[in-house]
C-alpha cells in the first residue's frame, strides 16, 4: 500500500513538474496518468520481476478510484456556497448546462456506437 501510494504520488509530482516546466495547459495529474500508463505499457512488460509491484499499484489504484465520487464533494460544496456568483444569469446558465451537457453526451455516444457497428459489419464482410 505504502509503496504503491509513493509511486502514484511520485507520478503526480513528476506530472506537475513537467506541466510547470513546459508551461502546458494540461493539469499535472493528467500528465502523471499518461506517464504511468506509458511506463506500464512499455517498461513493465516482462511480467516476472515486476509482477508484485504491478499488482500492488493496481490494487491501490482500484481502491482510490472506488471513492472517486467522494473526492468531488469538497469542491461541490464550494459551488453551492458560491452559487450567487452566477447572479441574474443563474437560470439561463443552468438551462444551457442541462441542454448542452445532455446533447453532447448523447451525440458523442451516438457517433461512437454508429462507428463501432459499422466496423463490426466491415469485419463480418471480410
Amino acid at each position: 500500500m505504502l509503496k504503491s501510494l509513493f509511486i502514484i504520488f511520485s507520478f503526480q509530482l513528476f506530472g506537475e513538474a513537467i506541466q510547470k516546466f513546459f508551461e502546458i495547459n494540461i493539469p499535472g495529474p493528467v500528465i502523471g496518468l499518461i506517464l504511468l500508463l506509458l511506463v506500464f505499457i512499455f517498461f513493465l512488460k516482462s511480467p516476472t520481476p515486476y509482477k508484485k509491484i504491478k499488482q500492488e499499484i493496481s490494487e491501490t489504484s482500484h481502491q482510490i478510484i472506488n471513492y472517486l465520487s467522494l473526492l468531488f464533494v469538497p469542491i461541490g460544496v464550494g459551488v453551492v456556497m458560491h452559487i450567487n456568483y452566477l447572479g441574474d444569469n443563474l437560470f439561463k446558465i443552468l438551462a444551457i448546462i442541462v441542454i448542452g451537457t445532455l446533447a453532447s453526451l448523447v451525440f458523442t455516444a451516438f457517433v461512437m456506437e454508429k462507428i463501432i457497428k459499422l466496423e463490426k459489419k466491415n469485419v463480418k464482410r471480410r
Binding site: 501510494l5 502514484i8 504520488f9 507520478f11 503526480q12 506530472g15 493539469p27 499535472g28 495529474p29 493528467v30 502523471g32 496518468l33 499518461i34 504511468l36 500508463l37 506500464f40 505499457i41 499499484i57 493496481s58 491501490t60 489504484s61 482500484h62 482510490i64 478510484i65 471513492y67 472517486l68 467522494l70 473526492l71 468531488f72 464533494v73 469538497p74 469542491i75 460544496v77
Partner: peptide, 20 residues
C-alpha cells in the same frame, strides 16, 4: 475538507490502471 480534496490528483493518476 482539503485533505479529501487532495486525493483528487492521485486518483486521476490512478485512472491509468483501469485504462491499462
Amino acid at each position: 475538507a482539503k485533505f479529501i480534496h487532495f486525493m483528487l490528483g492521485p486518483a486521476t493518476v490512478a485512472l491509468a490502471i483501469p485504462i491499462y
